[in-house]
Design a binder for these strands. Structure first.
Length: 720
DNA sequence: GAGCACTGC
């Protein structure tokens, strides 16, 4: 699957200025192609109900659209609304997606269907990338991005319609957005009288913004005071057959069902429950290979370890088959797999060969692999959970939900009729939960709370969520925010600390670290550390090259800990890139950087991501008036700032070499990947606590015990 | 002396 690069986006941005050329190109476009697009649009199931849909949207403020895969709802409905006059008076139709790739690919498709250049009437916006312009009327975006926009414009006043797509996935962002939209819709329909009440908060946000963006804020304020806000239309789109939850949440909103277009998939169950689903998976793979016609196989497993062991077992058993039957190739895919290896699943198998794709959940929604005819679903999934009492978020393996099983089997019917092998008996299916527990019920809520508070929503427990999060989880997260100084004793967002933390797109602890660092002249360094902590693992150590990777790591290692080590890695990569830039083109320099990363056992995707985050938060920090200064060679202030922000994650060495986490009282161990694994300093702070065989802490720095009482007196007092 | 699903700002 083609991935976006920043150079792509730069090119697209420059396209905005070449309308004339675009027009010429469009005029020259073959008539046949346009006709083909029109034909395709008319053939979609949703086309049959275009008039009904427009009528329903005109007559109702909120509408639920239930459409299965292939209905065309995501690409067509916004076009219908645009043609139906819903963008009159300059209103924008916003469509939110849970994933970035979806926002990009759908926007591209719709721009093509409309015959316009991407970024003009049709565009998209995701983090780090805004491909929209003043003329954009249909805007695809991630739901998280719209939530961010709401912090600057709490009425979402530029949108006439907001469509929340894939609402059935129930991500945290979707759930918070639904709650917000409900409030915004109410306020906007009440019009100008109530708007005045919120002006106070607008003004407060405005204060923060004025330094860099006074005109934008002024215009929002003017909009709110001067004119009556137009009502907001909300459309919730879901693929789940049960629209009731959404309908009830929006006061009995009407629901329209749109036919999907999928090929039939035969569902096969086992007669008996399987005791070992890995073994059952293997048997099924070979059964399909020996007995079924051509077509590739997609197997859903829970994680990297399972994928690698199934792959090994398949190759062990393959030689037992007759030579003509050995034409079977396996391809693993999971998110942490380097992208060049991920790409391989998209390549067609050589003639006569059958591809077996061993995938995690990534193949459920995030990537669509062509050629799949058979799906093997053992019915298990690995999910992150949240323990409010300890704050740990352990990963556990559980049974899938019915909705998930349906989603998986649907992967076999995209190009023709298919088969799905569920490795459990049919009566087990009936016992599965209808849908997956919404993320908001199993995650840390500190960011959600910070966000809602910044939107002026103070009563979190009383907030009208579509599904209420755990009361205890809310209270725990509020406690954390209070200890970080983001909330006052009255649970109000503090000014300026809480206000500033809410504006940064980071974990609250990281935001706090930036605020403290700005006061101790080491913001330059902290911006790098926080960016590096925000991405997936920076180092990778393939089993076969363990020793080599260890030597590579040593050249960056700091005796003070992992935070300074990450700083060293970032600086080394920057230095390499700058030197390379002097003698190479930008593309060549980036390619060289990837090579440098590989040689040093560093994940180049993570470094790229960290650089993007770094430039974003650096800009944010400057906009908020922070002084980005460096502490130079003396990194003591940086370590003190780490202690002052990560004080809740402090741990003390015990006589047996394990550590005691001070706030939770848990016994923890330094993860073997840490540079401090052997050093074992007396007092440390850590970034993260993960539970596997032990309670492991990761990303650790040595600190002085006395700093805790000095820098976090709200938590620690010196004992006599 | 270890292995962590997937997203997102």
């Amino acid at each position: 699957m083609p991935s976006m690069t920043s150079s792509d986006s730069a090119q697209r941005q420059s396209n905005h200025n070449t309308d004339v050329n675009q027009l010429k190109k469009l005029k020259a476009e073959p008539f046949a192609r346009r006709q083909k697009i029109e034909q395709h649009r008319k053939s979609l199931p949703i086309a049959a109900v275009e008039k009904v849909l427009l009528e329903e949207v005109r007559n109702n403020d909120t509408l639920i659209v239930v459409g299965e895969t292939g209905s065309g709802k995501t690409t067509q409905l916004p076009q219908y609304l645009n043609n139906g006059g819903f963008c009159r008076n300059g209103g924008i139709i916003g469509i939110t997606q849970p994933r970035r790739v979806a926002a990009i690919t759908v926007a591209k498709r719709v721009a093509e269907e409309c015959g316009v250049a991407l970024g003009q009437q049709v565009g998209y916006a995701i983090r780090f990338e805004d491909v929209t312009s003043r003329s954009t009327r249909i805007k695809y975006m991630t739901d998280g991005l719209l939530l961010r926009e709401a912090l600057l414009d709490s009425y979402l006043s530029k949108y006439s319609v907001i469509i929340v797509d894939e609402a059935h996935e129930r991500t945290v962002h979707t759930d918070v957005l639904l709650g917000l939209l409900k409030t915004v819709q109410k306020t906007r329909s009440q019009g100008v009288s109530d708007a005045v009440n919120i002006d106070h908060r607008e003004a407060k946000n405005g204060m923060l913004l004025e330094k860099h963006n006074g005109s934008e804020v002024a215009s929002i304020l003017k909009q709110c005071r001067g004119k009556k806000l137009s009502p907001l239309k909300i459309i919730i789109m879901s693929a789940s057959l049960d629209a009731r939850v959404f309908s009830e949440y929006f006061g009995g909103a009407r629901a329209v069902h749109v036919q999907g277009r999928q090929y039939p998939v035969d569902i096969l169950y086992t007669r008996q429950p399987e005791t070992d689903y890995i073994d059952a998976t293997l048997i099924t793979i070979f059964q399909i290979h020996m007995e079924e016609g051509p077509g590739d196989v997609l197997v859903f497993l829970t994680g990297q370890e399972e994928i690698e062991s199934v792959e090994r077992l398949v190759h062990e058993r393959l030689p037992q088959l007759s030579e003509s039957k050995r034409k079977l190739l396996t391809f693993p895919i999971f998110s942490s797999l380097p992208s060049e290896k991920q790409m391989k699943v998209f390549m067609p198998a050589p003639v006569g060969f059958r591809k077996v794709i061993l995938a995690t959940n990534i193949a459920e929604t995030s990537v669509t692999i062509p050629g799949i005819k058979y799906v093997i679903d053992p019915g298990m999934v690995k999910v992150r959970t949240y323990e409010a009492s300890t704050g740990i978020e352990p990963l556990i393996i559980i049974k899938t939900s019915k909705a998930q099983a349906l989603q998986r089997s649907g992967r076999a019917g995209r190009e023709g009729p298919g088969k799905c092998y569920r490795l459990y008996p049919e009566n087990e299916f009936d016992k599965l939960k209808d849908s997956t527990t919404p993320e908001i019920k199993r995650c840390n809520l500190s960011n959600v709370i910070l966000h809602l508070k910044a939107l002026g929503i103070d009563d979190i427990i009383g907030f009208d969520f579509i599904e209420q999060p755990d009361r205890i989880a809310i209270i725990k997260s509020m406690e954390l925010l209070f200890l970080l100084g983001a909330l006052t004793e009255e649970s109000k967002l503090s000014d300026p600390v809480g206000q500033k933390m809410a504006r940064l797109p980071l974990d609250p602890i990281y935001s706090k670290a930036l605020i403290i660092a700005s006061q101790f002249n080491c913001l330059e360094e902290m911006l790098i550390v926080v960016a590096m902590l925000s991405v997936e693992s920076i180092f990778y150590a393939p089993r076969e090259k363990l020793e080599e990777s260890r030597i590579a790591l040593k050249s960056f290692a700091s005796p003070e800990g992992d935070h300074l080590t990450l700083l060293n890695v970032y600086r080394a990569s920057e230095e390499f890139l700058q030197k390379s830039n002097l003698v190479n083109s930008k593309e060549k320099a980036e390619k060289n950087l990837r090579k440098w990363c590989k040689e040093n056992f560093i994940n180049s995707r993570s470094v790229k991501h960290a650089r993007d985050i770094h430039s974003q938060i650096r800009r944010n920090a400057e906009q908020m008036g922070f002084h980005v200064t460096s502490c130079g060679d003396d990194l003591l202030p940086l370590r003190r700032c780490l202690a002052a922000s990560f004080f809740l994650n402090a741990a003390l060495k015990q006589p047996d070499g394990t550590y005691r986490a001070l706030s939770s009282g848990l016994t923890v161990q330094i993860h073997p990947s840490s540079v401090l694994f052997r050093m074992k300093p007396d007092c440390i702070i850590f970034d993260e606590l993960v539970r596997t065989n032990h309670n492991y802490i990761r990303n650790i720095s040595r600190i002085d015990y006395l700093w805790l009482a000095e820098l976090a007196p709200q938590c620690y007092a010196l004992q006599e």
